[in-house]
Amino acid sequence: MKQKVWLITGVSKGLGREIAKQVVATGDIVIGTVRNKEDKVAFESGVDAKAFIIDLAETKLIPTLINSIIKEHGQIDVLVNNAGFGAFGMIEEFDEEEVTNQFNVNVIAVWKLCQSVLPFMRDKGQGTIVQISSRVAITAGIGNGIYASSKFALEGMSEALKQEVEPFGIKVMLAELGALRTDFFGASVKYAKNSLPFYTEKLTDIRTNTKKLNGKQSGDPIKVAQAIIEAVNKNVPTFRLPLTAGTIDAMKAKITEFQNSIELNENIARSMDY
């Protein structure tokens, strides 16, 4: 069987690194992205794979990255858009630069990676794009609104993209993750620089609460990586791949919310049409 070439963003730690390790173990080729030389050395010394140093928020650099991989390997069979971070805090607490940075990394960079890879996948008549999403893209909550909104944007983009590229033999999959035992709430997390004490008094201390979760999350990143790789190798049997019980619970809660809204408002909604 011919080796697949996987491009996995954000492989310095966490889920990205775990996916890379397991893909290499299957015999496929992995190209990763990291943000600095130290991460590149650490990744390449621990995983039999190559990493490129790139700040994906600098989207003008992405086509050069893709062209370099194509020049060396001739193809990119699987793109895993894993790189990203969570910005936490109340909506009112963020400044514009913080919100822009969240969207640049979690949405704009993903769009540019997809745009840059698609011509090569289309020429081959095949390919898979895996978008690492989150249960907060299903149901947002207190203190995660900016992060959730970036993932909601990712979901909308991916729903449309799935339909647009299917005629060319290209698959798109949303991996809907719950809380995993990674560094997400460690060095990777960012909080709004401005902290408004009246929210803590009335609602919750999002900073303290999330830090307490770090390393104690119920989700197993090893199992999640296995499930993503299996779904890719089975040619993406479902567009949404819910991973962790928290994701399933969020989906069920959303279904109930939608159903209640339909039951209460269907008649008036239909009366708007003529």
Rank of each mutant, 00 (worst) to 15 (best):
K4A: 03
P197D: 14
E201Q: 11
E176H: 00
I228M: 07
E58S: 10
I108V: 15
I53Q: 09
L241H: 10
A269C: 06
E72L: 06
N101G: 04
I62S: 10
L7W: 06
V80P: 01
T64Y: 02
V24M: 03
S133H: 08
F185M: 15
F88M: 15
Q163T: 12
T238K: 13
V172Y: 02
L161G: 08
K211V: 01
L65R: 07
T9K: 05
Q259N: 13
A51Y: 03
A87N: 14
V99C: 12
R270H: 11
R135T: 05
V105Y: 07
I170P: 03
N104E: 14
L177H: 07
F168R: 09
G215F: 02
F103T: 05
G219V: 01
D77P: 00
V107E: 09
E96K: 10
K190M: 09
F184T: 05
D77M: 03
A192H: 07
A137N: 03
T64K: 09
V107P: 01
D123A: 15
A20H: 03
F103R: 05
M272V: 13
S133Y: 09
D28Q: 03
E93P: 02
K193I: 02
H73C: 00
D273P: 00
D273M: 05
E93V: 05
V224F: 01
G178S: 08
S150T: 15
V34D: 03
L177P: 04
K252M: 10
E96T: 14
A87C: 04
V105R: 10
N144Q: 03
F52N: 08
S261N: 13
T204H: 07
A179N: 12
I229D: 10
S12G: 12
N233H: 12
L61T: 11
I262E: 14
R207D: 12
D249Q: 12
A187F: 00
G169D: 07
N209E: 15
K71G: 07
V78I: 13
K212D: 14
S134R: 06
K4D: 04
A137G: 14
Y147W: 11
V5M: 05
I229H: 10
Y199G: 03
A20P: 00
I70A: 10
D205F: 02
